[in-house]
Design a protein around this nucleic acid. Sequence first.
DNA 1: ATGAAAGCGCTAACAC
DNA 2: GTGTTAGCGCTTTCAT
Lengths: 343, 343
Amino acid sequence: MNKYGKITIRDVSERANASIATTSRVLNNTDYPVKPEMRKRILKAAKELGYTPNLLGKALKTGKSHEIGVVVPSLLNPYYAEAVTGIERICSARGYNPVFCSSDNSPDKELANVEFLIRMRMDGIIISKIEYGDEVIDRVNQAGISTVYFDQPVSNEKLSCVTYDFFEAGRMAAEYLTSKGHKKIAFFSLPFDRQSRISRYEGFKHGLKEAEGYLYLDSSSSYEGGEFLREFEAGERLVSDFLEKSEASAVVAINDLIAIGAMNAFSKRGVSIPNDISVVGLDDISFATMSNPALTTVKQPSYEMGSIAAEVLIDGLEGKRHKPEIIKMLPKLVERDSVCIHV
Amino acid sequence: MNKYGKITIRDVSERANASIATTSRVLNNTDYPVKPEMRKRILKAAKELGYTPNLLGKALKTGKSHEIGVVVPSLLNPYYAEAVTGIERICSARGYNPVFCSSDNSPDKELANVEFLIRMRMDGIIISKIEYGDEVIDRVNQAGISTVYFDQPVSNEKLSCVTYDFFEAGRMAAEYLTSKGHKKIAFFSLPFDRQSRISRYEGFKHGLKEAEGYLYLDSSSSYEGGEFLREFEAGERLVSDFLEKSEASAVVAINDLIAIGAMNAFSKRGVSIPNDISVVGLDDISFATMSNPALTTVKQPSYEMGSIAAEVLIDGLEGKRHKPEIIKMLPKLVERDSVCIHV
DNA sequence: ATGAAAGCGCTAACAC
DNA sequence: GTGTTAGCGCTTTCAT
């Protein structure tokens, strides 16, 4: 035992009367030939001493940590919680250890997290980037660390990315509503500060066809109390605005949280969903099944996106994939109880 | 540049015509005296080369990683998501980097995660333990790593723990209902496989006073699809059971997810909340404000518990606290719209 | 089949 | 004010 009070491989080797090299070979279960008795002695010594390998030493030496860094904007947001769960399952199935960092919706923290992961010499990084510019991308490229982006699209074709057809999702929502006879449809949104929102809205407009579209934007920006609640409340505010003008018979919300907040605000004011107003969300978070009425929405398969991002990254790390992979997941309409036919 | 293609401190020192030692001193911003020109040269060289410190080397040498490992049963569960956010904020404010691991509700994975964090030589660990026995505790103790437990209570007084008065929470819920005139109150629960659930139920019974209590247990155990939805569905199943017997005018649910699931199932069957049946939850997750009606519940301050756990741990690491700290957070009743007076 | 030793990137004690 | 060097725990090449 050294001055740090930790058992090292050296302590084990001494107690087993073996060399460090042999000890390392045994402890790592390599197929290197070692006499059975020696092997047994070493294993016994390790056990008796309560040896715990120091992965820092190992990673420093080998240049591989078997760790994968994951950066998401928020762990509070069910959407990311699901993605992260997908990542976690794949990584651990394939022998990697995911390390999650939340950037708390702050681009600065996002960059700091990425920096940290690079400095820790992660084998790879999975990131759902919110920063608008390319600082993160540049940093990661310069460091030469394998990275896959997910959620928000990344323009560069050289980069692996698991994204989603946001445009098509918006389009499907609008089209579904028109197919139900709605002629005037509102769009409830947060500020268009990310590509996904812009695309959703573009798609929405496209899906409208002959129907009229009305945009309602909530721009109160406080991120206090978690963006989670904030979005829910945005839904409530948008309803006030909407009710004043009463231009439409249906609304598409930029995400489920807003849709649910809106539905609640509507019911509180005696507007019945879906009888008076139809609502469709975008995302399909688990909670969408739990709202009352259950929310009709367009699914973004966050869990699968997370899993696939992890697969792509690990395949790359293990040399099973060489070119950057750009995967665009398709939306799927999930019909529940928040829409009805407009006559 | 070495064979790994990474810039090391050595490369920087060579380019700056300085020694490694001086370079290290400058790069770490120590107050060690270094001539301004030299300092400038080194900084310049580092920048030009795109030097990125290798934290593995540093941690190996110093024995401090400034990383804190966090293990929770699930990141999908909003309760833990909130706790984790509290941890994240404190750690990053105090210069530590939290590393989150989800054990995916599996005791085996929990132990594996803990093992990983120990091997990575984290400075400390924060864990919400689900494993029923003491394996995790023993392992952590043997490794001699500073740890604070949170959520589930830990019996050992030698261990720092941030927990919650589960008994009192159950009691408050029951008492609140009796104070509203309810005489027959049901308790909706999942299996009593953890202390928190047992305590909540005990407290509930205690708070009943002269009122009658009825226990409804959901034991369908599949963890597929995430415990999140599972609990919501458990609420629905419990309602079927309840409606067959119709013994009570109010229900206390072991957690908010079940309460919300139950409320939905009730409304679907034409039972109006709170007019026909009053419901109170336990937890106060953010979703509780978003249900319809908004859920009256007993708050467990998960965000604060996470923050405090982080504070306690870091104080310990920095020698600002020496004895184990046992903190028991108090519940708080949050009145919303799911309860009414029983006549 | 086993071991000695170099070295991964870094810090810090010590020397000058 | 600056530099030399030992060594953190580990793997791995090369000898034996």
